[in-house]
Simulated assay, not measured.
Amino acid sequence: MSEVLDNLRYSEEHEWAQQGEGQIVRVGITDHAQHLLGDIVFVEFPEIGTAVSAGDSVGSIESVKTVSELYSPISGTVTRVNEALEDSPELLNGQPYGEGWIYEVEIEGDYASATAGLLDAAAYRELVGE
Results as ranks from 00 to 15, higher is better:
Trp16His: 02
Gly28Pro: 05
Leu36Ser: 13
Arg26Asn: 02
Leu36Asn: 07
Glu12Ser: 09
Leu37Gly: 11
Tyr10Ala: 03
His32Pro: 06
His14Arg: 13
Gln23Glu: 07
Ala17Trp: 02
Gly20Trp: 01
His35Val: 03
His35Leu: 07
Gln23Thr: 06
Glu13Gln: 12
Asp31Glu: 05
Ala33Phe: 01
Trp16Ala: 04
Ser11Asp: 12
Leu36Cys: 05
His14Leu: 03
Asp31Leu: 08
Arg26Gln: 01
Ser11Thr: 02
Glu15Asp: 15
Thr30Gly: 09
Ala17Met: 07
Gly28Glu: 04
Glu12Gln: 13
Ala17Gln: 06
Leu36Ala: 14
Val25Trp: 03
Leu36Gly: 07
Glu21Arg: 09
Ile24Asn: 11
Gln18Pro: 08
Arg26Pro: 00
Gly28Asp: 02
His35Cys: 05
Ile29Thr: 07
Glu21Phe: 02
Glu12Gly: 12
Gln19Trp: 00
Leu36Phe: 01
Ser11Gln: 02
Gln23Ala: 14
Leu37Phe: 12
Ile29Lys: 12
His14Asp: 06
His35Trp: 04
Asp31His: 12
Trp16Val: 10
Trp16Ile: 11
Leu8Val: 15
Asp31Arg: 13
His35Ile: 11
Tyr10Leu: 02
Glu15Lys: 06
Trp16Cys: 04
Gln34Glu: 15
Ser11Phe: 00
Gln18Phe: 09
Val27Tyr: 08
Glu15Pro: 04
Arg26Leu: 03
Trp16Leu: 09
Glu21Gln: 10
Tyr10Lys: 04
Ser11Trp: 06
Tyr10Pro: 01
His35Glu: 15
Leu36Met: 09
Gly22Asp: 05
Val25Cys: 10
Asp31Asn: 15
Val25Glu: 10
Leu8Lys: 02
Leu37Asp: 13
Val25Asp: 11
Glu15Gly: 05
